[in-house]
Amino acid sequence: MKTNEEKFEDSMRFVVAHFEKGVFIRHKAWDKIMEKNRFNWRRMLAAASIACAILAASAFIYTSLSPSLHKDAGIIDNIETDPSLTVDGSVSTAKLEFKDAPLSDVVREIETTYGVSISGLPENEPTLTLSYEGSASELVETINDVLNTSLVIEDDIHDETFKDKSK
């Protein structure tokens, strides 16, 4: 157990060994502590702002690049792949996709895409789910097979066989 004198000597030796004027100034330390505290708050705010900006940019890029979805029932996509254009500009082959599409919509789409006229639409309105690539006549034949319908292409300048049938 140290005496008071020994404690005094020990502290004095320690203080004189390390003493430096202007070090451990209370009011300067207090200002720094409050400044660090303010700085942390600012840093957090800056980090939150950057995070929001990144999120907004990501959302913008995602919505810009994502494929647009048809809201209309039935027609998913109508992609023309290697369309064979005839002299009058109509398409001889195309790729169509239908999902639960009413037959009337299907017929309208075929007429528009292939430049043909189709008759024989039944009174009931069956729906069609089909992904097809080919000519209008082959498509109509496929539809007739699938839905047991009797659609007829009134005018198809690309299909010689069909012309024979129409005769």
Partner: peptide, 17 residues
Amino acid sequence: KDETEDIVQQSFVSVWE
């Protein structure tokens, strides 16, 4: 002394937070 000042200030900052 520099390390000392840094550590003591950090301690007060963390307590205040």
